[in-house]
Amino acid sequence: MRTASPGDLDSITDLHTLARTAYYQAGGVPDVELASPGGHSSRRESWRRAVHSSDRTVMCADREGELVGILSMGPPHEADIDAATARQLYQIHVRPGIWGQGTGSALHAEFVRVLRDASLVTGVLEAWERNSRAQAFYARHGWKPDGHHRPGPGNGNYVRMRLSLDPAV
Protein backbone atom coordinates (compact mmCIF):
# COMPACT_ATOMS: atom_id res chain seq x y z
CA MET A 1 0.00 0.00 0.00
CA ARG A 2 1.38 3.38 -0.96
CA THR A 3 0.29 6.93 -1.68
CA ALA A 4 -0.41 7.59 -5.37
CA SER A 5 1.91 9.88 -7.31
CA PRO A 6 1.42 11.85 -10.54
CA GLY A 7 3.37 9.11 -12.33
CA ASP A 8 0.54 6.67 -11.50
CA LEU A 9 -2.18 8.59 -13.38
CA ASP A 10 -2.23 6.45 -16.53
CA SER A 11 -2.23 3.19 -14.56
CA ILE A 12 -4.90 4.45 -12.16
CA THR A 13 -7.11 5.63 -15.03
CA ASP A 14 -6.71 2.33 -16.89
CA LEU A 15 -7.54 0.26 -13.79
CA HIS A 16 -10.56 2.46 -13.01
CA THR A 17 -11.77 2.07 -16.61
CA LEU A 18 -11.45 -1.74 -16.47
CA ALA A 19 -13.23 -2.01 -13.10
CA ARG A 20 -16.09 0.37 -13.90
CA THR A 21 -16.66 -1.28 -17.27
CA ALA A 22 -16.95 -4.68 -15.56
CA TYR A 23 -19.53 -3.63 -12.98
CA TYR A 24 -21.57 -1.35 -15.22
CA GLN A 25 -21.73 -4.05 -17.94
CA ALA A 26 -22.81 -6.59 -15.33
CA GLY A 27 -25.54 -4.14 -14.29
CA GLY A 28 -26.85 -3.79 -17.83
CA VAL A 29 -25.38 -0.46 -18.94
CA PRO A 30 -24.87 -0.67 -22.74
CA ASP A 31 -21.30 -0.63 -24.04
CA VAL A 32 -22.07 2.49 -26.09
CA GLU A 33 -22.69 4.42 -22.85
CA LEU A 34 -19.45 3.12 -21.32
CA ALA A 35 -17.21 3.91 -24.29
CA SER A 36 -17.77 7.64 -24.67
CA PRO A 37 -14.87 9.26 -26.55
CA GLY A 38 -14.07 11.71 -23.77
CA GLY A 39 -14.66 9.32 -20.89
CA HIS A 40 -11.08 8.13 -20.48
CA SER A 41 -9.60 11.61 -20.59
CA SER A 42 -12.28 12.88 -18.20
CA ARG A 43 -11.46 10.08 -15.73
CA ARG A 44 -7.74 10.83 -16.04
CA GLU A 45 -8.35 14.52 -15.32
CA SER A 46 -10.49 13.64 -12.30
CA TRP A 47 -7.73 11.38 -10.95
CA ARG A 48 -5.11 14.09 -11.64
CA ARG A 49 -7.12 16.52 -9.51
CA ALA A 50 -7.53 13.91 -6.75
CA VAL A 51 -3.82 13.03 -6.65
CA HIS A 52 -2.87 16.71 -6.46
CA SER A 53 -5.60 17.68 -3.99
CA SER A 54 -4.69 18.72 -0.47
CA ASP A 55 -7.91 17.32 1.03
CA ARG A 56 -8.09 13.98 -0.79
CA THR A 57 -6.07 10.83 -0.36
CA VAL A 58 -5.41 8.37 -3.17
CA MET A 59 -3.74 5.08 -2.29
CA CYS A 60 -2.41 2.36 -4.58
CA ALA A 61 -2.16 -1.37 -3.97
CA ASP A 62 0.64 -3.03 -5.91
CA ARG A 63 1.33 -6.69 -6.49
CA GLU A 64 4.63 -7.72 -8.06
CA GLY A 65 5.16 -4.21 -9.40
CA GLU A 66 1.70 -3.94 -10.97
CA LEU A 67 -1.08 -1.62 -9.81
CA VAL A 68 -3.96 -3.88 -8.76
CA GLY A 69 -6.13 -1.59 -6.63
CA ILE A 70 -6.89 2.03 -5.87
CA LEU A 71 -8.60 3.87 -3.03
CA SER A 72 -9.78 7.47 -3.05
CA MET A 73 -11.15 9.26 0.00
CA GLY A 74 -11.78 12.75 1.27
CA PRO A 75 -14.34 15.06 2.83
CA PRO A 76 -18.03 14.21 2.47
CA HIS A 77 -19.79 15.51 -0.66
CA GLU A 78 -23.20 16.00 0.92
CA ALA A 79 -24.01 18.84 3.33
CA ASP A 80 -25.98 16.53 5.64
CA ILE A 81 -22.81 14.62 6.55
CA ASP A 82 -20.77 16.21 9.35
CA ALA A 83 -17.22 16.64 8.02
CA ALA A 84 -15.98 16.98 11.62
CA THR A 85 -16.83 13.32 12.28
CA ALA A 86 -16.87 11.68 8.83
CA ARG A 87 -14.77 10.92 5.78
CA GLN A 88 -16.10 9.77 2.42
CA LEU A 89 -14.80 6.71 0.65
CA TYR A 90 -15.09 7.90 -2.94
CA GLN A 91 -13.80 4.85 -4.73
CA ILE A 92 -12.23 1.45 -4.29
CA HIS A 93 -11.37 -0.29 -7.54
CA VAL A 94 -9.64 -3.64 -7.92
CA ARG A 95 -8.38 -5.07 -11.18
CA PRO A 96 -10.98 -7.52 -12.54
CA GLY A 97 -9.56 -11.02 -12.48
CA ILE A 98 -8.20 -10.69 -8.95
CA TRP A 99 -11.49 -9.83 -7.24
CA GLY A 100 -11.98 -11.84 -4.06
CA GLN A 101 -8.24 -12.17 -3.32
CA GLY A 102 -8.01 -9.60 -0.51
CA THR A 103 -6.96 -6.43 -2.35
CA GLY A 104 -10.30 -4.69 -1.78
CA SER A 105 -10.28 -5.66 1.90
CA ALA A 106 -6.74 -4.29 2.29
CA LEU A 107 -7.81 -1.01 0.68
CA HIS A 108 -10.87 -0.90 2.92
CA ALA A 109 -8.69 -1.50 5.99
CA GLU A 110 -6.55 1.47 4.92
CA PHE A 111 -9.67 3.65 4.79
CA VAL A 112 -10.67 2.54 8.29
CA ARG A 113 -7.12 3.19 9.53
CA VAL A 114 -7.29 6.75 8.18
CA LEU A 115 -10.63 7.28 9.95
CA ARG A 116 -9.28 5.98 13.24
CA ASP A 117 -6.02 7.96 12.97
CA ALA A 118 -8.09 11.13 12.49
CA SER A 119 -10.45 10.18 15.37
CA LEU A 120 -13.40 10.08 12.95
CA VAL A 121 -16.33 7.79 13.70
CA THR A 122 -18.25 7.67 10.40
CA GLY A 123 -17.48 6.57 6.88
CA VAL A 124 -19.84 7.32 4.03
CA LEU A 125 -19.86 6.07 0.43
CA GLU A 126 -22.12 5.64 -2.57
CA ALA A 127 -22.53 2.35 -4.42
CA TRP A 128 -24.43 1.92 -7.65
CA GLU A 129 -27.64 0.02 -6.82
CA ARG A 130 -27.02 -2.60 -9.53
CA ASN A 131 -23.51 -3.32 -8.29
CA SER A 132 -24.58 -6.05 -5.91
CA ARG A 133 -21.00 -7.28 -5.62
CA ALA A 134 -19.85 -3.92 -4.20
CA GLN A 135 -22.84 -3.62 -1.89
CA ALA A 136 -22.21 -7.13 -0.53
CA PHE A 137 -18.51 -6.32 -0.05
CA TYR A 138 -19.31 -3.19 1.94
CA ALA A 139 -22.04 -4.96 3.95
CA ARG A 140 -19.49 -7.63 4.96
CA HIS A 141 -17.32 -4.79 6.27
CA GLY A 142 -20.16 -3.31 8.37
CA TRP A 143 -21.63 -0.68 6.02
CA LYS A 144 -25.40 -0.10 5.97
CA PRO A 145 -27.61 1.83 3.53
CA ASP A 146 -28.84 5.08 5.10
CA GLY A 147 -31.82 5.69 2.80
CA HIS A 148 -30.24 8.44 0.66
CA HIS A 149 -30.21 7.91 -3.12
CA ARG A 150 -29.20 9.95 -6.14
CA PRO A 151 -29.51 9.24 -9.88
CA GLY A 152 -26.81 7.13 -11.50
CA PRO A 153 -26.10 5.57 -14.89
CA GLY A 154 -28.36 3.17 -16.71
CA ASN A 155 -31.51 4.51 -15.04
CA GLY A 156 -30.18 3.24 -11.72
CA ASN A 157 -29.44 5.07 -8.49
CA TYR A 158 -26.45 5.42 -6.25
CA VAL A 159 -27.22 4.18 -2.74
CA ARG A 160 -25.47 5.90 0.14
CA MET A 161 -24.04 3.65 2.82
CA ARG A 162 -22.53 4.45 6.22
CA LEU A 163 -19.97 2.79 8.41
CA SER A 164 -20.09 3.58 12.13
CA LEU A 165 -16.90 3.00 14.05
CA ASP A 166 -16.76 2.42 17.78
CA PRO A 167 -14.76 5.40 19.07
CA ALA A 168 -13.39 3.30 21.92
CA VAL A 169 -11.55 0.87 19.62
Results as ranks from 00 to 15, higher is better:
L120S: 07
M1G: 12
T122I: 13
S54Q: 13
R130F: 02
I12H: 00
S105F: 06
H16M: 09
L107Y: 00
L115P: 00
A79M: 06
D10N: 11
G123L: 04
S41F: 04
D82P: 07
R95L: 13
H149P: 01
G156F: 07
S105I: 06
P30I: 10
A19N: 03
A84M: 08
L67C: 09
Q88M: 15
S164T: 15
S46W: 13
V124M: 03
F137S: 04
G27W: 02
T103D: 11
N157T: 08
V58G: 05
H16N: 08
I92H: 01
L15W: 06
H77S: 14
A35P: 01
I98E: 10
A35I: 03
R150Y: 09
H16R: 02
R49C: 10
R130H: 12
S164D: 13
R162D: 12
H40G: 08
G38Q: 12
E78V: 01
R130M: 05
L107P: 00
A134K: 02
R56N: 14
Q25S: 15
P153A: 15
V169Y: 03
V51N: 03
A79C: 04
E64R: 06
H108F: 11
G27R: 03
Q88F: 08
A50W: 04
A127N: 03
Q101S: 15
D166S: 10
R162I: 11
A106K: 06
T103E: 11
P37H: 10
L165Q: 01
T3F: 09
G65H: 10
R113F: 08
A139E: 10
E64N: 13
T57R: 11
T85Q: 15
D80Y: 13
G156T: 10
L9V: 02
D55W: 08
L15Y: 06
E64T: 12
H149D: 11
D14Q: 13
R43S: 14
L163E: 04
A86R: 02
W47Y: 03
D117Y: 07
M161V: 09
G123F: 04
R44Y: 05
H93Q: 15
S53I: 06
G28I: 08
S164V: 15
D55E: 14
